[in-house]
Design a protein around this nucleic acid. Structure first.
Length: 344
DNA sequence: AAATCGGGGCG
DNA sequence: CGCCCAGATTT
């Protein structure tokens, strides 16, 4: 896998590491590093922008400062701290991981050892082993795929993100700075996050532009070429019903595939209602390849069918909302809608 | 190999 | 509305 002439590798690594030392963001897991901080930050960052997960990270570390604290916590409280971040299996797996970790006499160190723990795949295992233990395992995430595709001028079309990750693993391994793998891996990702942007890359500021086949060219923006899934649109109606300082909520079944055990505003069909003309509020959210428009209708009663017969429906006093895990952005919605309703 | 997870922010 | 983010797991 010929990326560059051998003589160029050492200089590229040096340019990259010098840039990284100055340009790296002062992220909390860099300021207060450690094995636990690395694990939590890497799992929270999966498929999630750093800016999005940052407040969750701070809150999480206050409540669960180490593996022991997390292992001792209830799953309900763990999920409550993940509420709104999405991909909730990450939180369950991190909880399981902590319980397994504290029970281990020999703690995992290598990438291979970490990958046997729940929620740890190839990327996260390599990240933990390199950053927290200095082991020479190269990471390949979305940033690294983009940086390498442009560096190498790789124009082939990949059928999926996974295929691209597989393709760029050998060159990532070859390029890895084995003397300083943690900083090198983070530098590659930081380059993708700060300069080698998906659109309008800032090649003029790039420390490795001299080695890059796409630097300064308009073609850079088109790399990597990955076939993306079509976005599916969905529409959902929901009912807001308030009664004596309580709100009607639907608890999603514990064995449901998605959002198990979480609370949401009930859909009209659960209550035998038809959505009326004018929604109280309209909210849009998205997850992976879904884009969901949700219309929230106010209903003061009465109900055509006795809803108390429906499983999972319950009137929850507003002051008890704090301890429940609400689905996705529901807590934010309720804050907005109830705040407005109160004024009316 | 492909689908799923039903989150969010940006241009 | 399209794109993509420090991906992993299930099918």
């Amino acid at each position: 896998m010929e990326i560059l002439p051998q003589s160029a590798f050492a200089l590229l690594r040096k340019q990259l590491s010098q840039w990284y030392r100055c340009a790296r963001r002062p992220l909390p897991w860099r300021l207060v590093p450690g094995v636990y901080a690395t694990v939590v930050s890497e799992i929270m960052a999966q498929q999630t922008r750093i800016a999005t997960m940052l407040p969750y990270y701070e809150n999480w570390m206050r409540r669960f400062p180490d593996f022991e604290a997390l292992a001792a916590a209830d799953e309900a409280e763990v999920l409550r701290h993940w509420e709104g971040l999405g991909y909730y299996s990450r939180a369950r797996n991190l909880h399981r991981l902590s319980k397994a970790y504290v029970a281990l006499a020999e703690k995992p160190r290598t990438s291979q050892e970490w990958e046997s723990l729940p929620g740890i795949g190839p990327y996260t295992a390599a990240a933990i082993a390199s950053i927290a233990f200095g082991h020479p395992s190269a990471v390949v995430d979305g940033n690294v795929v983009r940086v390498l595709a442009r560096l190498m001028g790789e124009e082939r079309e990949f059928a999926s993100n996974g295929e691209a990750v597989k393709f760029f693993r050998p060159p990532a391994d070859e390029l890895l700075d084995r003397e300083n793998p943690g900083a090198h891996n983070q530098a590659m990702m930081e380059l993708g996050a700060l300069l080698c942007l998906p659109k309008k890359p800032r090649c003029a500021e790039c420390p490795v532009a001299a080695f890059c086949k796409s630097a300064g060219k308009p073609e850079a923006e088109a790399l990597p070429r990955i076939v993306r899934r079509v976005v599916e649109k969905m529409e959902v109606n929901r009912v807001l019903h308030l009664e004596n300082g309580a709100i009607l909520l639907h608890r999603i079944a514990a064995d449901a595939k998605r959002l198990a055990g979480q609370y949401e505003l009930p859909e009209p069909k659960l209550l035998g209602l038809q959505p009326r003309e004018k929604p109280l509020a309209v909210r849009t959210r998205s997850i992976t390849h879904h884009r969901i428009v949700e219309r929230i209708y106010r209903h003061d009663g009465p109900f055509p069918v006795k809803w108390t017969k429906q499983p999972g429906l319950a009137l929850v006093p507003l002051e008890k909302l704090e301890s429940l895990t609400l689905s996705g952005p529901h807590r934010r919605w309720l804050g907005e809608i109830l705040g407005r309703t109160r004024q009316n």
